[in-house]
């Protein structure tokens, strides 16, 4: 019963994210959805993943996106941010709805759910798996994150002459 409420909240948040007119409202709906997904993680006994979801997604990633929305806000909050509605989008909406129905049906009736569920792993096993079985993957992930941050700061550099001169120590 509780899971029905949580998943209803997640789906409602996702629909609000897709169909709300302003980018900031979409973002708030998306954060609501992520909270609900963290609740679903909790119900699957994945407390550690729920904590990661809230700390990483809601705490940092969504804040960064909000910052980006504010930096580019002049144009994008009016007409451009409304969803397009025409015949083609209606057809694609029907197609996606059919895809959802087929996916849910195929997932719920898959024979792999037939045997008894084995129960959830523990957080201790999770730590053991990350730092023993998947050590190399964790290290490579760290390198990837560092490269992504360096690349991002390279992409947003400002090459106007006044900034270059200030960088070289020129007076005003």
């Amino acid at each position: 019963m509780l899971f029905v409420i949580v998943s209803g909240a997640a789906v409602a948040g996702a629909i609000g994210c897709v169909f709300s007119g302003r980018v900031a409202h979409s973002l708030l709906w998306l954060m609501f959805t992520f909270f609900a997904v963290a609740g679903a993680f909790l119900m699957a006994a994945a407390e550690m993943l729920a904590a990661i979801q809230i700390l990483v997604y809601l705490g940092s990633v969504m804040l960064v996106v909000q910052f980006g929305v504010m930096l580019t806000r002049r144009r994008i909050q009016d007409v451009e941010s409304l969803p397009t509605v025409n015949a083609l989008s209606a057809v694609s909406g029907i197609g996606v709805f059919a895809l959802i129905l087929i996916l849910v049906r195929a997932l719920m009736e898959h024979p792999m759910w037939g045997d008894e569920a084995a129960g959830s792993p523990t957080t201790l096993e999770f730590a053991d798996a990350i730092f023993n079985d998947w050590t190399m993957a964790t290290i490579i992930l760290g390198a990837l994150l560092a490269m992504a941050m360096v690349g991002a700061s390279y992409l947003v550099r400002d090459e106007r002459l006044i900034n270059l001169l200030w960088d070289m120590g020129a007076e005003e």
Binding site: A14, V18, V104
Partner: peptide, 21 residues
């Protein structure tokens, strides 16, 4: 629930022109 969320996200990528959304 994952399947439904995936479908809604797919619909959003079809409907929106705004790159952030």
């Amino acid at each position: 629930l994952g399947a439904i969320l995936f479908g809604v996200g797919l619909l959003g990528t079809f409907y929106h022109k705004n790159a952030i959304v």
